[in-house]
Design a protein around this nucleic acid. Structure first.
Length: 486
DNA sequence: ATCGGCTCGCGCAA
DNA sequence: TGCGCGAAGCCGAT
């Protein structure tokens, strides 16, 4: 991995790999995929260089915040698929589904003890930064995390972007090189030594540790997690995600430029759940989307467009619109969280937004709802209730309505910090793509992040206002309301 | 249907 | 130091 992608590598401890180790360890905790994964590719390269086998260890703990059947099932689906894939290919993949809180403590450190070098996922949000910091402190051998989050390596910005249009300039200045430096589609194809075993004492101490060939089905009901948030109707694996991507491209991508904001049009890609768990990489999606450009299109012709959101990618407008969402808007959230540890705190909002919200905290609020009323979709507003029901039932809110959803919570809460707490709680509890840098972008945009001031009004101050009446006039909602109405 | 005003601050040109 | 400009808006005037 050289030049452009060297910015993806975070050497967390100095020193040479331990030549006496039995294997190279890749601990998979964020980008849960075996394909188009820079961290796995880096681990394979080390294994080959040291002439050692590779051990892949994927963990699913039982007490992460908002743990529920919904998220557990999605990750279990992926682990099952990877077990079968690795079993077929003879790759040494081990999964550990923690049976109860705390049972996993010491596992990764113990597996790392027998390794030459340890590699894991660089990821800027939720519990993963702590995972990496804790392991870094606990082990003495070389530990490296690799950023496979998106097209633009996190290290290519030097601070949290203030606005998307500023990050878009970074995208346009770096896309060509990123496009020329794509990850290997199938890094395991290059692995020389596949078969590795773990010391027997590890299986004795952590009996749930499972080699790929020994996989047997597991139900979320076996874990001490929230069973009130139900599993989704589709599987959280690559087969499902890739099928969904192909269907999106074949049926909806051409309408994406014009109809993406209409809930009735279902022109959205539906990729965010698979992006969130790393099941499918941003790179793979970019590749398939650019395959749709007109014959003769080439990245060689791309030129910096001053950060303008149209006119950079050329070809189809709908390709450009979709890639702006995927690369610029997804990326700005990742880069923001990477540079701003308080990405989930009210105090991270720009000064103008905090000031204007604070100036209006004493404004009369004609309608107030409790978290319980919001959660059970008991407001006077049928559009908002429908969005909330979509969130609870299907684990997602349509990309336009989720903004209205957040704006109304601000309007109906006693103060902006409570509104923020309600949004985070509801989104992270129910959204399959929640607890993600990009999901925090959506929530905080409702409070001014990446946005600019607008006409001043009660409660909102100069935060951009949105209303259900305008939404009704602007987008097509009839079928959506029918589907998610009470 | 379209348009201007509302309002702020970053980054860059000068 | 000045200036252009920006995710999805709103409202009222024309």
């Amino acid at each position: 991995m050289k030049n452009f992608n060297s910015a993806r590598v975070y050497k967390r401890s100095a020193g040479e790999p331990n030549a006496d180790g039995s294997y190279v360890l890749y601990w998979m905790h964020s980008n849960r995929r075996l394909y188009s994964n820079f961290a796995l590719e880096y681990a394979v390269a080390w294994a080959n260089k040291l002439d050692k086998p590779l051990v892949i260890l994927e963990t699913l703990i039982s007490d992460y915040p908002w743990a529920s059947d919904r998220f557990h099932q999605f990750m279990i689906d992926g682990i099952k698929e990877k077990s079968q894939d690795c079993s077929r290919r003879g790759v040494s993949y081990f999964s550990y589904l923690e049976p109860r809180a705390g049972a996993w403590i010491g596992l990764v450190e113990r597996v790392a003890d027998d390794a030459c070098i340890v590699i894991s996922d660089e990821y800027p949000a939720f519990i993963q930064p702590r995972f990496n910091r804790d392991l870094e402190k606990a082990i003495s051998m070389p530990f490296t995390t690799v950023d496979s989050c998106g097209m633009i390596p996190l290290a290519l910005t030097d601070k949290a972007p203030y606005a998307a249009f500023l990050f878009r300039k970074v995208v346009q200045k770096n896309f060509k090189e990123s496009w020329a430096s794509m990850p290997a589609a199938d890094p395991l194809a290059d692995l020389k030594v596949k078969s590795a075993s773990l010391s027997a004492d590890i299986f004795t101490r952590w009996p749930q540790l499972t080699a790929a060939a020994d996989w047997s089905d597991v139900s979320p009901s076996e874990f001490d997690i929230d069973h009130s948030v139900g599993s989704l109707t589709y599987a959280g694996n690559r087969a499902t995600g890739l099928k969904r991507l192909d269907d999106f491209i074949a049926r909806n991508l051409p309408r994406y430029g014009t109809e993406r904001n209409d809930p009735d049009s279902s022109a959205a890609s539906g990729m965010s759940p698979f992006l969130h768990f790393g099941t499918i990489s941003e790179h793979e999606i970019v590749q398939k989307i650019l395959d749709q450009q007109p014959a003769g299109w080439t990245a060689d012709a791309l030129e910096y467009a001053g950060g303008k959101s149209e006119g950079y990618f050329g070809g189809h407008l709908y390709v450009e619109k979709y890639l702006d969402e995927l690369i610029t808007w997804r990326g700005v959230g990742f880069h923001y969280a990477h540079h701003e540890p308080d990405y989930d705190k009210f105090e991270s909002l720009p000064d103008w937004a905090q000031n204007t919200l604070n100036e209006h905290t004493k404004d009369p609020r004609p309608v107030l709802y409790t978290l319980e009323q919001l959660e059970s979709a008991q407001t006077y507003d049928p559009i908002w209730n429908a969005a909330q029901r979509e969130l609870v039932r299907d684990g997602i809110i349509h990309n336009y309505l989720r903004m209205l959803w957040g704006k109304k919570i601000l309007e109906w809460s006693p103060d902006p910090e409570t509104a923020l707490a309600y949004m985070i709680e509801l989104n992270n509890k129910y959204a399959i793509d929640g607890r993600d840098p990009n999901s925090y972008s959506g929530i905080f945009w409702c409070l001014g992040r990446f946005d600019r001031p607008w006409f001043e009004r009660p409660i909102f101050g100069t935060i951009r206002y949105m209303s259900s009446d305008s939404t009704k006039k602007k987008v097509k909602l009839r079928n959506y309301l029918e589907k998610y109405g009470s």
